[in-house]
Structure formats: C-alpha cells, structure tokens
Design a protein around this nucleic acid. Structure first.
Length: 201
DNA sequence: CCCTGATTCGC
DNA sequence: GCGAATCAGG
C-alpha cells in the first residue's frame, strides 16, 4: 500500500481528531501503526509536546563511531497545533445537585439496555456516585464507538445506546486490567457497597 | 501485559 | 520516502 492522497488525508483527519496511530492504521488497512507514526512525522504534524518535558536529551552515543551530523534537525518550524481539547458545549449537567430524582442521565443517548443483555449489570440507575457518573459522561465523548465486531479482549465492552437503533456502540476504550470495561465504566459497573451506602433521601 | 507516540536507520 | 525495530513512557 502506498500513501495516496486519500490515505494521507484520512490520516491527517484522524490524527487531528486525536485518534491513535494504531486506530488509524486499522482504519487505513495495509499499514501498521508504525507506518502511520512514521508518516505522521514525515508530514511534520507530530509534536504534541507541552506538558511532558522532553527537552531534547542528547542522543546517547555509546560507540564513538558514526557521529551523525543531522544538520536540519534544529530548524523545525514550530507548528502551533491548537488542541481542540476544549469542551465546547456541555448540555449535560456535569455536577448533579443530587436533588430531586438525581438521575442526570445523558439527554439523548444511552437508553435502557433490554433484558437479556448479558454484559452490563446496568446498575440500578440511581445509586451511582455523581463522580462516577460524571466520569462516564466524560469518557463517553472519547469513546471509540466500536461495533460488536471490533471489540477485543481488551476493549471496553460497555454498550451505549439502544441496540435496536443506529445509535448504538460499545465504549471501546482500553479496559482495566482483567475487567471487561474501561476505567470509568468499571466505576459504575462494580459498585462497592460502601459507595451505595448513604443515599441522600 | 497492554497500550501510546518517538526515533533510528536499512532499504 | 518508507516502515520495522527499537526506544521510552503510561
């Protein structure tokens, strides 16, 4: 496979969306994540540097043999890449005041899972800690939105939406070691009894 | 162990 | 230019 314009564009698009290299590779097909990363670098749209201080540590040359001059290395034109990490709109109340029925379910998505669904112990809705709930609402924005077929042993199998409609997908984020769900969904799936203790009522 | 991106370097 | 191998981190 070669890097046709189309493929490069898809690469750019997905990379811009914050998709991981492996995911992009999977989408493109015929390439590995290494290939994707390599291309990304060649395209010059890599650096997501900011917090992680990676101050160009001098290459550790063990054998004093081939001093690679790498001349044009330092002349990298700083490409300001505005991270669209801003949370544009938040229609959902992030911090439920825990009053009234205290069920700040997501507006349109995530309905009830029909009976017979073997996967999620869809916790009795109510007694989930607001923190955990907020967390779930958070990560569901970042969910990979995988289809049933795309699930693997280590992708979160938390279903979202109504299986009978188009608006249905699995979280797909990396699972917590051993568990079938990602970090956030483990939080709502397995409720320690202590957590569901004092309900405000 | 799983994943992530970053870098190197033979092709 | 390409990408496997490797590196470095979470």
């Amino acid at each position: 496979m070669s890097w046709t314009d189309e493929r490069v564009e898809l690469l750019k698009k997905m990379w811009g969306e914050g998709q991981s290299a492996s995911q992009i590779a999977k989408e493109l097909g015929g390439v590995t994540r290494n290939a994707v990363i390599g291309k990304v670098h060649r395209l010059g749209l890599s650096n997501r540097n900011s917090g992680t201080a990676k101050p160009a540590a001098e290459p550790k040359e063990k054998p004093a043999a081939a001093p690679k001059p790498t001349p044009a290395a330092a002349a990298a034109p700083a490409k300001p890449k505005p991270q669209p990490k801003t949370e544009p709109a938040r229609p959902v109340t992030p911090e439920p005041a825990a009053s009234a029925e205290g069920r700040p379910a997501t507006p349109a998505r995530r309905q009830i899972i029909p009976a017979g669904q073997p996967l999620p112990p869809q916790p009795s809705a109510n007694e989930i800690s607001p923190e955990a709930l907020a967390k779930v609402n958070e990560i569901e924005k970042k969910a990979k939105r995988l289809t049933l077929m795309e699930l693997t042993e280590r992708t979160c199998k938390w279903p979202v939406g109504d299986p009978a409609t188009e608006d249905f997908w699995f979280c797909g984020l990396p699972v917590q070691q051993g568990k079938p769900y990602c970090d956030a969904h483990v939080g709502v799936a397995f409720q320690p009894m202590s957590a569901r203790r004092d309900r405000k009522r």
